[in-house]
Design a protein around this nucleic acid. Structure first.
Lengths: 148, 148
DNA sequence: TCTTAAATAATAATGATTATCTTTTATTTG
DNA sequence: CAAATAAAAGATAATCATTATTATTTAAGA
């Protein structure tokens, strides 16, 4: 059973309060976006969104809030070297993604064989593994159509 | 049967010549390092190495050469957002890696189930997939020992 | 050997993210 | 409820790997 945005938001707020963080209006606005977005927004996207209600907000505020929420394990950061980071506050645990190289869309994936996979890597390399990053790159259905 | 460094080097040189690129001493030195290293060196590591024989070499030369070789598909680039890129000229096709978060060691992995994995993502998302990036993060055996 | 397009080397520019610092504000406590 | 204070916001500067630029040098074919 997946958490809906409401529950995610409450979880996030609870975690922040429990760790002594204040709930400011700007922070709340950022939390709302992170908890409800399934499109893996960038800082810029979040900034533009929040700006509608808080015209004086600074990009730095968005960055700092995301850092706090990330450190509490409530948002997954997908960092790219040549593009801005993208954030998933809806499914904050590592999971595979399909990334469209054309429109930069990012789609979640849930794969059962992932556990076997991790176990195999463990056996093969002797690493103690505690995180992963699995991205598949290609064309999403929309962009495939547009290329015809 | 894996290519040894020698064969890899010859393959790279052939591809460069075949595409009208000149073989300069600096370029050759970079090719040699890329073709023989199994440790996934960074630009800085390559730069320091080449500098021993070519004290006046510029970092820009290393960057530009890697770009050329990468565009010819002869080196795999592993880009990180908070760390320098790392390069694999030994196995230039996408494959899973185990990355030590302590010492930054990068170990190759060959996994058979990868094909099933990719097929599953294809079915699940409708993407036309042509590339992937699979990283497992953790502690390598050496760093596990040092933590005891 | 000469020619010329490409490569090198030095340096400036880029751009996302982080750091710094002052002002403002959420929350606690008397 | 007001005052105190620690944290957050906002503005702006700094960072740092990578890319772009430009003048000089050089590999390789004629």
């Amino acid at each position: 059973m997946k958490n809906d945005g409401k529950n995610r938001l409450e979880t996030m707020i609870g975690k922040l309060k429990g760790n002594g963080y204040k709930i400011t209006p700007q922070r709340l606005a950022i939390l709302k976006i992170l908890s409800t977005s399934i499109g893996h927004p960038s800082v810029e996207k979040i900034y533009e969104q929040v700006k509608k209600n808080f015209p004086t907000i600074s990009r730095a505020t968005v960055y700092k809030n995301i850092l706090v929420i990330k450190d509490l394990g409530e948002v997954l950061e997908l960092a790219f070297s040549n593009d801005s980071n993208r954030y998933d506050g809806h499914l904050p645990h590592p999971h595979p993604h399909a990334i469209c190289t054309e429109c930069k869309k990012i789609v979640d994936s849930e794969l059962e064989i992932l556990k076997d996979f991790t176990q195999k890597v463990r056996e093969e390399t002797g690493f103690r593994i505690y995180d992963h990053r699995i991205d598949f790159f290609g064309l999403c259905p929309d962009c495939q159509k547009n290329k015809e």
